[in-house]
Design a protein around this nucleic acid. Structure first.
Lengths: 194, 194
DNA sequence: CGTCTATTTGAATGTACTCAAAAGCGGTGG
DNA sequence: CCACCGCTTTTGAGTACATTCAAATAGACG
């Protein structure tokens, strides 16, 4: 699925590093591949790993007390994912992470990440920008959820993630949009008749 | 309202700085006070200022095409606020920022912020952590919006912002929760009878 | 006290939901 | 190649929750 000779520093596309930095980077990230269906994090686990997706797709979700599934976030290439509340405050997971298509990721522990940022401000800056991008996308999504009807949220989703359809089921999309699969089905039908 | 002798470095509570860093910090942040009702940002403005709240309360909101008002974010003491999509990508604002109670803020431009981060990794690290906290809180709010009925979202809100009620109107809360003022009124009535 | 703004109430409407069942799709094995 | 199985999506009918619009009440402030 992926060239095994790839270097860990591929994460930081346009950056260049000293020999020492390269060594640290290679020692703190773990490259891993996972099959579709793997659960990487479950509620109440310690959530001290962050995943940086290189190939495939992960999702962060929660099962509520009525058994309903809610997708908080998807992560595709170049996006990271973790249960942030738990990861940043070093508490137990309140969400789950699932591999929804065969994936290759780089994973890093909180401790190693702190170490890395300390030794190499350049990497902190790189991930800070990733975080800003993710935050902006959450702000926009929040606005959409507050202001748009389900049909337009769906259209936005398709526009934002044009190639994700291979990886995700409609019920994933529905749970991301905050509607039921039945409603999504009706929306899609309506859109196809126009 | 506020001790005028306060130093800009008060922003970075527990950090200490070299003389040089202190000088930069004092030169890049602008301290400002604003009256309730001031509009700090309007749609289509250039959104190159970020506000770090020291006292008072700001909100980030959007008026949709039906004229409905949606609150994307509140900022109280120790939280920052900006139209992130616009700020980070240096594009025009898609949202507005309004002062909803008399406030004292530190403001910084995108350019100065980049300069500061460059000169002082410590400050970048400080704000990166603020961003992480904000991101985690968005993840949680998103989950709540997806999984909880309006009544419980309201209860969560009151728990999360216990002292905000002096600053915000009920219609601000409603627009933050994604419901109408009428619905919020009914929810509050129901809660008071129990 | 009067004015402006904010909140509450009521009645009718609408959008999305629930539950149950049918249809579609994809893979496996005979 | 077809038959079967499990999983996903679609369809239908009834329901629930929040919305809309309009009007009444309550609060704040000069």
């Amino acid at each position: 699925m992926h060239n095994d000779n790839s270097k860990t520093t591929e994460i930081f596309k346009d950056l260049s590093f000293t020999k020492k930095e390269t060594e640290i980077i290679e020692s703190v990230f773990r490259k891993a591949t996972y099959k579709k269906g793997t659960q990487l994090l479950q509620v109440n686990d310690s959530a001290d790993i962050q995943y940086y997706v290189q190939e495939g797709c992960l999702r962060l979700y929660h099962i509520d007390r009525n058994g309903k599934d809610h997708t908080v976030q998807f992560a595709i290439k170049d996006w990271w994912i973790c249960d942030c509340t738990a990861f940043f405050t070093e508490s137990k997971a309140i969400m789950n992470i699932e591999v929804i298509s065969d994936s290759m990721v780089y994973e890093i522990s909180k401790k190693d990440r702190d170490l890395l940022y300390n030794q190499s401000p350049k990497t902190e800056s790189f991930f800070r920008k990733k975080l800003e991008r993710a935050f902006a996308s959450f702000q926009k999504r929040m606005l959409g959820n507050l202001s748009l009807p389900a049909k337009e949220r769906y259209l936005n989703f398709v526009k934002t993630y044009p190639n994700i359809e291979k990886s995700v089921k409609n019920y994933h999309i529905a749970s991301f949009l905050g509607i039921t699969t039945e409603s999504l089905s009706r929306i899609r039908k309506e859109l196809s008749n126009s």
